[in-house]
């Protein structure tokens, strides 16, 4: 009598349809050697599905996760710093615009000229910022910070343009 191979017995347990022909069932019912091997495999399968030995690893994973949380917090703080700098930059730009609106002529004849000048000055800068922001989106937070720094620099230059040099411009126009 030919005994079943290990492969046939494993396939039998795995429940593959082709490996459960009636003759295999009959052989297992009458052959003590093969039914013994089948029992050993069933016990092995049961042990392989047991994860009690993983308890220490779960503890290590929990520890690793707690450290991961700290790193995420640091990243969140970085993101918040970026947002704060960008907000300050925008607030600064708005303040300068408001100051220009009221102090450099305000509404009236100078407004149209002021808006046209601002548009000319702002458009290329905004386009550049938009392009940089798109690139930054795919590169990472570091580039985002560089873009923010560029924006802050832009605000400083705006202040310089509107506060320090108006007299020079007037002299040139005049």
């Amino acid at each position: 009598m030919r005994h079943l191979t290990d492969e046939e017995i494993q396939a039998y347990i795995d429940g593959e349809a082709a490996s459960r022909p009636p003759q295999v069932e009959a052989h297992l019912a009458e052959c003590p050697v093969c039914s013994g091997v089948l029992r050993e495999y069933r016990r092995l399968y049961s042990a392989l599905a047991n994860d009690r030995c993983f308890a220490p690893s779960f503890l290590r994973a929990t520890k690793a996760l707690s450290e991961l949380r700290l790193r995420e917090k640091a990243e969140t703080g970085w993101d918040r710093a970026e947002t704060a700098v960008a907000t300050l930059g925008i607030a600064g730009a708005l303040a300068v615009a408001l100051w220009a609106y009221t102090a450099l002529g305000g509404p009236g004849a100078g407004l149209t000229e002021f808006l046209a000048t601002s548009r000319r000055y702002l458009s290329p800068a905004l386009e550049s910022l938009r392009a940089l922001a798109n690139a930054a989106g795919s590169v990472g937070a570091e580039v985002g910070l560089v873009v923010t720094a560029c924006f802050v620099l832009y605000v400083i230059l705006s202040l310089d343009y509107l506060l320090v040099r108006p007299s020079a411009r007037q002299a040139t126009n005049g």
């Binding site: 290990d6 492969e7 494993q10 091997v37 495999y41 092995l44 399968y45 392989l48």
Partner: peptide, 12 residues
């Protein structure tokens, strides 16, 4: 899978 289980059963 087959070879690993066969070896494990035998070793144990």
């Amino acid at each position: 899978l087959f070879r690993a289980r066969k070896l494990l059963r035998r070793r144990l």
